[in-house]
Design a binder for these strands. Sequence first.
DNA 1: TAATCATTCCAATGATTGTTGGATTGTTAA
DNA 2: TTAACAATCCAACAATCATTGGAATGATTA
Lengths: 217, 217
Amino acid sequence: MKSARKIKDLLYEQVARIGKVFSSPKRLELIELLCQGEKTVETLAKEASISVKLTSAHLRELRMAQLVETERQGKNIYYRLVNKSVADLWVQIHTLAEERLIELQMSLQKIATQPNDLVHSDRDSLMKAARKGEVVVLDVRPSEEYLNAHLPFARSIPLEELRQRLGELPKDRAIVAYCRGPYCLLAVDAVALLQQEGYSAVHLREGVAEWAVTDKR
Amino acid sequence: MKSARKIKDLLYEQVARIGKVFSSPKRLELIELLCQGEKTVETLAKEASISVKLTSAHLRELRMAQLVETERQGKNIYYRLVNKSVADLWVQIHTLAEERLIELQMSLQKIATQPNDLVHSDRDSLMKAARKGEVVVLDVRPSEEYLNAHLPFARSIPLEELRQRLGELPKDRAIVAYCRGPYCLLAVDAVALLQQEGYSAVHLREGVAEWAVTDKR
DNA sequence: TAATCATTCCAATGATTGTTGGATTGTTAA
DNA sequence: TTAACAATCCAACAATCATTGGAATGATTA
């Protein structure tokens, strides 16, 4: 039998392989994007504003850590997270980061300059209001992402189409806009546009991944 | 206002600071040790089989990521995790790693060559049996760690003292030994010794951190 | 006060990682 | 079949990280 020390080193090294995946900003962004549903390398590259080659290299890391799986559909290769645990871990890590790092808290506050941020403590009351139709929950992500998964009672108007489709929204009710999560700025833009146009709009920090974390504290 | 891209880069970079902490085997081992309670740099170094200087360097990373806090007590500086979220994250990461990485699964199986491993699905029944006194739950970690936190109904006999104190244990009941978690080999040794001496002993993979994860699936 | 101990800081090393350009594989469309 | 496309592999570079030795700090004990 090997020495206990060598066995332990081996074990921790394996776990560190998973940790490494979460140690690069770009990879984190890719993971967040994959939380919205399966995507091609090209799409991921564009959304994350990096080259296709670099995206491929990062996805390779994810693949080797067994956190994503691929499927060829015609010309494209689609990547998706292997299961919900991966999305959960992303949420846990960024939650811990927000809780601990003051720099991150301050950066996040900059995003929400106006006091139009919904605190995430009132999920139940938001859902109750949405059920009764007192508020409109608005998903401003691309429609494929909405189709893949969305919050209960949410309506889909991608940010790109929002200006033309403003007529679909009521002016007499509150609009709660959300997107991919706290680091996605789509909903911020949407809220700005809506407020400018005279709608009463607020921003919901959370996305589907955050909403769906197994561990609700 | 800065470009959206720059803001996003900043945000992910901050989160990656937390991720980086979990990307090094030694740091993971230190975190697991800190899950057992506060410890001095020297103790941590000895337990993790690395130099004090290197330990100090790794702890510096943990400190800068705001995941640990320090307190001077006399000559020594004690380190402890800032809160339970950190321990939870460690458990989540190693659980995901065990779930995904076949190499890790195989290494873990090597540890438990005999079929004396308790699956972790039967927490409730184990506790029920422990309450009734049908089994003895045995904590073989150093006694300070036991004093800091231990499983319900557990008795403490540190591995080092086990041979001398065998008489305290009954031969007519099952003994369930545990230590710091699946990567700690104290309980493995304990079970080997107990079985050799004619006790019916089994090994519980989980430690207090795993037992206490908020998210029980 | 000096001496000792526990820990950290600083500087230097080799090893690892992120990133890019060029060539390559596998797939669809003409 | 060839051309175009999506994605990967390979090689190379700079940037970052783990690790070690030597000096420095801060607290305790003699």
